[in-house]
Simulated assay, not measured.
Amino acid sequence: MTRSVIAGSGSFLPPRIVTNDMLAAELAERGVETSNEWIVERTGIRQRHLAERGVTTSMLATEAARSALRDAGVAADEVDLIIVATSTPDYVFPSTACLVQSQLGIAGGAAFDVQAVCSGFVYALTTADALIAAGRARCALVIGAEVFSRILDWNDRGTCVLFGDGAGAVVLKASADEGPQAPGVLAANLHADGSQTRILCAAGNVAYGEVTGDPFLRMDGQAVFKLAVNVLAQSAREACATAGVALEDIRWAVPHQANVRIINALARKLALPAENVVVTVDQHANTSAASVPLAFDAARRDGRVQPGQLVLMQGVGGGFTWGSVLARL
């Protein structure tokens, strides 16, 4: 049976770093009060990367893709599938994935976007894994990329302090190795509850040449917190049961980087040691679909994540959507 193996990873962050103090000063000019202490206490965020105007999601995604290809030692023309997870595409269409394909100078393979907000990368990774297992692809680029600063209301301190911009990517390759310790994706699950749409949404659109609805991100933070912790814990247990492993076998948990309180509560619920949980929200803030691949790549590059280890990647976000991917590196 063919399985998909993570052959490499990469990331790209806009060079502009905005610390909490810098952001507080900018917001004060708008009459919005916040502080480094207020943000850190409630979220764990200390800084974020923000794209300059004119920098698009496809630009960030392409740089992350190039980084992942270099890491995997794979040439761009070997890629026969590109999936980009994003809620901030360059255009209504064509897809951001098609734009990335063009910027990489390749053509012919499938390219499409997945929209599941902060769960997007897990949705995209699961989709790519399924296509490789079915023999429909041999080498996939799976990318999470966002320019969330485009859809933030900078007069709403409850949301504008939470998010950042960036992109992360992995290269998935087909493998026939089926040994008990062989690398590859071991389990994945995806879920959604559309009845929870309003707790996290950006309910605007463009119609007849005009913006309709509310174009900004809106969130009920308490409702998101409660739902996120519970569904992620259930999803983690489901993935372990599918793979036939115990929770304590997981060497690294890479959850969506939304809020350090959510991350810590999830770790406690699953009895995962804090030192086994990858946390980058302090440096990146919430980068939505980019958060999981950014955190995964950071942990690989600093030497924490090693070959042979079990890694649990989890996303949760608007929709309401959630899911998990369990892989052996």
Rank of each mutant, 00 (worst) to 15 (best):
R3L: 09
R3K: 14
I6M: 15
S9R: 10
S11I: 10
S11H: 12
P14N: 08
A24F: 04
A28Q: 11
A28R: 15
E29S: 12
R30N: 07
G31E: 03
N36K: 00
I45L: 08
E52L: 06
G54P: 00
S58H: 02
L60V: 05
L60D: 02
L60F: 04
T62F: 08
A65H: 01
R66I: 08
L69F: 01
D71H: 14
D71Y: 05
A75Y: 04
E78L: 14
I83V: 15
T86H: 05
T88S: 13
A97E: 00
C98Q: 04
Q101D: 05
I106R: 02
V114D: 05
V117P: 01
V117A: 15
Y123I: 10
L125S: 08
T126E: 03
T127Q: 13
A128V: 07
A128F: 05
A130D: 10
A133R: 15
L141K: 01
E146W: 11
V147R: 11
S149Y: 05
R150Y: 01
L152N: 06
R157F: 08
T159D: 04
D165W: 06
G166W: 01
A174S: 12
A174Q: 08
S175A: 09
A182P: 03
V185G: 09
N189L: 10
S195I: 00
I199H: 01
L200Q: 00
C201P: 03
A203C: 14
G204N: 03
Y208A: 13
G213E: 00
D214M: 12
D214Y: 12
P215M: 05
F216M: 03
F216A: 07
M219Q: 08
A228F: 07
V229T: 03
V231D: 02
A236K: 11
E238P: 03
E238A: 13
A243L: 10
E248W: 13
I250Y: 12
A253Q: 12
L266W: 07
A267I: 15
A271G: 07
V278R: 07
V278S: 12
T280V: 04
D282E: 08
Q283S: 12
A285N: 02
N286I: 14
T287F: 02
Q306I: 11
Q306C: 14
Q309A: 14
Q309N: 12
V311P: 12
V316K: 00
G318Y: 11
F320Y: 07
T321M: 15
T321L: 15
G323E: 01
L326V: 08
